[in-house]
Structure formats: C-alpha cells, structure tokens
Design a protein around this nucleic acid. Sequence first.
DNA 1: ATTTGCCACTAACAATTGTTAGCATATTTT
DNA 2: AAAATATGCTAACAATTGTTAGTGGCAAAT
Lengths: 196, 196
Amino acid sequence: MGRIKTSDTTSRREIIIQKAATLFKEKGFKAASMRELADIVGVEAASLYNHIKNKNELLNIICFDVANRYMQMIAEIETEKNSSLEKIEKLLRFHITGMVKHFDEVYVSDREWKHLEEPYLANLQAQRRAYRKRIAAIIDDGIKKKEIKKIDASTAVLIMLHAVSGIESWHRSKAKINGKELEENMVSILVSGLKK
Amino acid sequence: MGRIKTSDTTSRREIIIQKAATLFKEKGFKAASMRELADIVGVEAASLYNHIKNKNELLNIICFDVANRYMQMIAEIETEKNSSLEKIEKLLRFHITGMVKHFDEVYVSDREWKHLEEPYLANLQAQRRAYRKRIAAIIDDGIKKKEIKKIDASTAVLIMLHAVSGIESWHRSKAKINGKELEENMVSILVSGLKK
DNA sequence: ATTTGCCACTAACAATTGTTAGCATATTTT
DNA sequence: AAAATATGCTAACAATTGTTAGTGGCAAAT
C-alpha cells in the first residue's frame, strides 16, 4: 500500500494515534477494528504493529494524554492567587476550549475509558477521582469564604464536568454558534448558578 | 440449565431486556456478548432467541423505551399553564428522578445509541433532536417573557441534559448524598443559572 | 391421558477479531 | 557501496462473535 506519510512535526506513530482517536470516537473502541484503522492510515493491519504494541496501547495513550493535561492545569490554578469563583471559571474555560480543540481525544477518554486494561484502568479512575476532589475543594473553599452558595460541592463538580462534555452535541449540530459564544453562554449559566 | 423464572408481572422477555440493560451499561453494547447475557439470565445463549429476535433488538427496545417516556413528559409539560422557568424545573426534576430510577436503561440509551442499526438509528436521532428543540422553545419563550436571561437556548439545553447524565458518577461514588438532596442541588444550580 | 405449544438444549456455521511469523523492500547510517 | 534499521507486505493463527437448525422435554389445555 505504500508507507505512511510523516511531516516534520508528526511521527508515524502519532499519526496512527490521531486517526485512532477519530475512529474510536466515531465507532467506539470495541467496534473499531485494527483493519479499519489500517485502511484509514493507508496501510495493512499488520503494519500498524511496527509502531504500536497493540490496540489497547492506543487507548492508554489517548486517555492519559487528556488526564495529564487536566492535572497540569489544576495544579497551576491551585497556586494562583484568585478567588474561588475565578478559579472555577478559569478551569471551566480551560475545559471548554480543550473540548473544542482536542475533541476526539477528550471524547474518547470520557466515553471509552471502560475498555482500559489493568493497571491502567484503576490508575485512570484514581486520577479522575483525585481530580474531581481537587475541584470540589476549591468549591468548598468558596463556600466557606461566602463567594459560592451553600451546595454540595461534588454535585457541582459533576454538573460542571458533564455539562462541558455536552459540547459533543454542539459539535454535531448544524446550527452552530461559534466556539467563543458557546463558552460565554456556558460560563454565564454555570458560574451564576454557583454564585451566592 | 433450567428455565427462566418469571414473576406474575415480568415475562421472560422482560427479564432478558432488564438484564441486558445492566450488562450493556457495564461492558458497553459491543463488548457485551450474548453468551454472557445468557449466563446472567441462567440459560444457554441460543435459548435467548426464543424470546428476542437478535442482539440489536435489545438495544432498540431499551433506547426507545427511554425516548418514549421523555416524549410523553414533554408533551404533558407543554400543555400545562406554568411559567417557562417552572416548566424547565419540572422537566429537570423528571430527568433527575428518571435517571436515578431507570439508571441502566437511561445510561445505555445515552451512551450506546450509536450501535443502533438503520432505520432505528436515524429514527432515534430525529426524535432526540426534536426533543431538544421543544425544550429550547420553552427556554426561548422564557427569554421573551423575561423570566430567563438572554442566552443561547440550545446551549442551555445541552448543559441541562448532560448535567443530568452526570448522575452516572454520583451512582458510582461512595460518599453519596441521597437522591432528593442531589435533586435539590442540581435544580438550585441550574435553575438559578438560567434565571434573570 | 394425550396433545399442543412453549422453551431450553447441543452442535455447528461463517464471519470477524487482534495479533504473530516470516519475508521483502525501502531508507538511513556507516 | 555496504550494512543496519525501519517499515511494509502476505498468510495464517486461535479465539470469539452472533445466529440458526434440529431435537427433546416440560407445562398447560383438551
């Protein structure tokens, strides 16, 4: 079939991962086959294994890529000297733009993590739990300082994160408002929903 | 293996569908096998086909069951003489309690509809689009009447529906607040996020 | 008690899956 | 130019998949 075209910035491996993310998003991890991925990449199925260990490694990479980005951002936010509400807003905006930009990856990481194998599964779950806890801590802090109304923090986290993942249907919809507008609307609804 | 136990209210078919919903939720539709489902039901795989046409029929039933419940509720709400905000709140509460009660079904319908086959796939997608439009219409009406702040209605719908589907992680979490509390928190955040 | 229909079983199928082995060709390094 | 490495191919594998055919037994109706 011919070899995979690489650019200077993107290795063959990275191309495969990228196309895998798109395929997994469209068909789901289990329903996507290596032969199909190979077709898309422009190569025979067996040739993929010169670049990756196996199918599950693809999912690992995608999921932890996303998780690591989030962990980095929350660490940064925690150190900044902002009000709790400002911190939440910044995180929210980060999630929204991240969802718009790295859509396939984030989508797959959100919906297909179930198919990770141990120890990666347990690892990612722990990481996600920890992440939610850190956000909840910011909210609880805001409640204590009376910037945020008295609500259950973990419920608020759950709403925020899942609302953002709803951008999926914005992505699919025809009558799209633009990304910036979407962001402002989401922030407006969610932040004022928290405010005291 | 012996035959499937039926109660007076639940046919063998319904038992299979119920167990299928749970299995599909846990493993995903594609990853769940008929042999596994048969095991859970307590029967050989081939025996399932005395009660259902095929695997995809199970998914059809689950998805349209949920969709029909929603369609019925929105029709009811539209006829009532309430303010837009009250209508939205009622719908929101319906979604929340529905998610808590029919968790497996709703979860599967939300995440696995991709694996429906035509014409069911197109059918359900159309139904969901129509459903979201009807909610958006209520919101737009509320904006016109100045009960709701000026926002993009379809973004608001997207936030609402996906926030509710986040109850999934509440379901899994250990430190659970109770269902009623969860409902009040969600309503509080989302409704006040919309209010003018 | 006999018949009828429901229901579960065994066995088997064709298709699809992820993956490996072995070999050929292209590219890069020496 | 030669050697080494990277990357592709074909063929094949074992396992798993959904599903059907055919058979026999259990339960309810006659």
